[in-house]
Amino acid sequence: MQSKPYLSLADVKKIAAAAEAEALANNWAVSIAIVDDGGHLLWQQRLDGAAPLTSYIAPAKAKTSALGRRESRVYEEIINNGRVAFLSAPEVEGLLEGGVNIVVDGHTIGAVGVSGVKSIEDAQIAKAGIAALG
């Protein structure tokens, strides 16, 4: 039987704090969601001024990234390159850049999804959060 790392509550709080700090440093009003490797929500916050819709988009991006074991940006590119049939894939809703999977020792252990600013900036916030794990 194999073993793999997992996100503890302390890890999640560390990621959330660093992602929030990145967003606030840039004056970006966003929602931030963190999920485990099965796409189950572990943390969500909506910063002041973030649109209500972002609270639905951020966890969808995170779930898609965790289940697919890659950044959600990859799916956006697949669709933009003409493979629109991918829109019918089950369990994927956040097909936009801004979901970033968390990889430790070669295992995807979760993901961070961010929504509220340009997609590349959403991803920047997610990556800043993940970087806090070291």
Rank of each mutant, 00 (worst) to 15 (best):
D48V: 10
A50K: 04
A51V: 00
A51R: 02
L53S: 00
T54D: 15
Y56M: 11
I57C: 02
I57G: 09
A58D: 04
A58E: 03
A60S: 04
K61H: 10
K61F: 12
K63G: 06
K63R: 15
K63S: 11
S65T: 09
A66I: 03
R69Q: 14
R69S: 02
R69A: 09
R73M: 07
R73F: 06
Y75A: 09
Y75R: 04
E76T: 15
I78N: 01
I79V: 11
N80R: 11
G82D: 04
R83S: 07
V84E: 13
A85K: 03
A85N: 14
F86L: 15
A89C: 02
A89W: 02
E91S: 08
E91A: 14
E91D: 15
E91G: 12
E91W: 04
V92Q: 13
L95A: 08
L96P: 02
L96K: 07
E97S: 06
G99Y: 09
G99P: 03
V100P: 13
N101K: 01
N101R: 09
V104L: 13
V104W: 03
D105K: 10
G106C: 09
T108K: 07
T108M: 05
T108I: 08
I109L: 10
A111C: 08
V112L: 00
V112Q: 02
G113F: 14
V114I: 05
S115F: 04
G116R: 01
G116S: 00
V117H: 14
V117N: 11
K118D: 14
